Simulated assay, not measured.
Amino acid sequence: MSWFTRALTRYKYHVIAAAAGSSLHLFNHTCCHQDSILKYDEFSLEQTTMLVKKVLKTPPNPFIRFTAHCKEKKDLHQFEFIADAAEQALPAVVSIDVKQRQNYVFEVQGSGSGFIVDKRGYIITNEHVITGCKGVTVVLGDGRKIPGTVVAVDSLTDLALVKVETDLDLPEIRMGDDSKLRPGQWVVAIGNSLHFPNTVTAGIVSNTARSISDNDMLRHQAPKVGTSKYVQTDAAINPGSSGGPLVNLAGEVIAVNTIGVLGNASGMAFSIPVSEVKRFLKEFSEGQQHSSSISKVTYSLGLRIITLTPGMANFLHQQGKLDPSLSSGVFVFDSAKNSPAYHANLDKGDVIIAIDNHEVHTKDDLSRAVQQSGGNPVRVTFFRPDRGFLFTNITPEKS
């Protein structure tokens, strides 16, 4: 008897050592030691002999050996939770082909993903999927194609709503609750990955509320970085997956696949929480798209900016380039030539602290205030080294 078998016996497990290789099959039945004799409560010699014969006939692959002991196929079904989750969500997942008119000819420029949130034909996707498009075609999971129309866009969170007109009985996805997410939780991503429809990948939640708007690497790689907190996952999100659902094991969407990090940072992707989708849909249904951040137009001042961090603030204080009373704001790196900010003489080194009557502490604050202006002039208050606190009126431009 090997040391391993003796050790397991000592810890009160019934051990049957198979002759096939060194594999061991453990059966969790109590055995007791009395007068130096092992007495087995439930296993007769006949039952034990039958089990050993079964083991010897089983192939050496441990997974095959494991499945061979399952009495019925339903015993394995409990391990197919990824497939079960995908099966629940797949009928409501669509591909989105976008077209742009060039030289008076329609040319397909790209594709993305989306999912049906209302059987009347409303589909959620990313704004960057449909930006600049002149035509949208929604491709259902069975390959049927339906023309679509962009009916609303939220540029701050990179969400868009597409509407299709059809008499088909469209399936709609079930909404989950991202507030209940935990790091380490299993999730499934579905989308039109690299033009392969209905691609399913799986992973775990790495972080439930990741802010990435100030990450230089993501800002260069991502087509658009919104303002929301993202769900970080290691499920594969490739080009074309944007706009597809990230679902939990109940098949409920808990986020919108948005950014897959390329290059050396494999196993890292970001999705917009479903709470943002619910807010977006609520504002649209209440007809607030003209008085909130939801619109078909994005506005910009034409600035290159970064959120002022405490470390940056301390450095600028030491250099005498920031008022001691300031510890937050938005630092201006540059302004695009002929942009509204350029004509308003905003310059490198300025620190923006307010838009109209709204304090600005982060890039997100500034973007939100500019978008909510609806293109109307805004009063920008900022600090300039050697000049102090200043303000100027700027009219945002469409971007």
Results as ranks from 00 to 15, higher is better:
373 S>W: 01
277 V>Q: 07
355 I>S: 01
130 I>W: 09
377 P>N: 03
215 N>Y: 04
174 R>H: 07
332 V>E: 06
161 L>W: 04
104 Y>R: 12
25 H>E: 02
281 L>T: 00
380 V>D: 00
242 S>K: 07
292 S>D: 01
72 E>K: 14
138 V>A: 09
75 D>Q: 06
393 N>Y: 10
394 I>E: 01
278 K>P: 00
65 R>N: 05
114 G>A: 11
359 E>A: 14
15 V>A: 05
324 P>I: 14
95 S>K: 13
112 G>K: 07
168 L>S: 06
233 T>M: 13
209 A>S: 14
161 L>F: 05
217 M>N: 03
265 A>H: 05
181 L>A: 08
367 S>M: 09
49 T>A: 15
3 W>D: 07
117 V>Q: 07
381 T>R: 15
173 I>M: 08
117 V>H: 08
67 T>Q: 13
163 K>A: 11
321 K>Y: 06
167 D>F: 07
33 H>K: 08
161 L>Q: 02
103 N>W: 12
300 S>R: 13
394 I>K: 02
247 V>H: 04
37 I>N: 09
334 D>Y: 12
54 K>Q: 12
23 S>H: 13
193 S>M: 13
373 S>K: 01
126 N>Q: 03
98 V>S: 03
370 V>G: 03
147 P>Q: 05
399 S>G: 00
1 M>C: 05
204 I>C: 13
296 K>L: 15
122 Y>K: 10
347 D>E: 14
337 K>F: 14
108 V>S: 12
89 A>Q: 05
202 A>V: 04
385 P>W: 05
112 G>T: 04
242 S>V: 05
27 F>R: 12
238 N>G: 02
134 K>T: 12
166 T>I: 10
335 S>V: 13
238 N>Y: 02
123 I>C: 10
99 K>R: 08
263 G>L: 11
315 F>E: 12
119 K>A: 13
74 K>D: 02
284 F>Y: 15
31 C>H: 03
146 I>V: 14
234 D>E: 08
101 R>P: 00
50 M>N: 03
55 V>H: 11
56 L>K: 11
265 A>K: 09
283 E>I: 02
215 N>M: 14
328 S>T: 08
261 V>P: 00
337 K>E: 10
29 H>W: 02
48 T>G: 02
43 F>G: 00
281 L>C: 10
146 I>M: 06
150 V>P: 01
154 D>P: 01
115 F>Q: 06
261 V>W: 05
2 S>E: 10
242 S>E: 03
306 I>Q: 15
27 F>T: 09
41 D>T: 04
355 I>R: 00
279 R>T: 10
24 L>T: 00
127 E>L: 11
225 V>T: 09
6 R>Q: 11
243 G>R: 11
135 G>W: 08
32 C>F: 08
367 S>Q: 05
83 A>E: 12
148 G>A: 06
358 H>M: 05
137 T>I: 13
277 V>L: 12
18 A>V: 14
236 A>E: 03
318 Q>C: 06
40 Y>A: 03
169 D>S: 14
77 H>S: 11
341 A>W: 07
242 S>R: 07
105 V>C: 11
301 L>G: 00
307 T>S: 15
166 T>M: 12
252 E>I: 05
387 R>Q: 13
116 I>T: 02
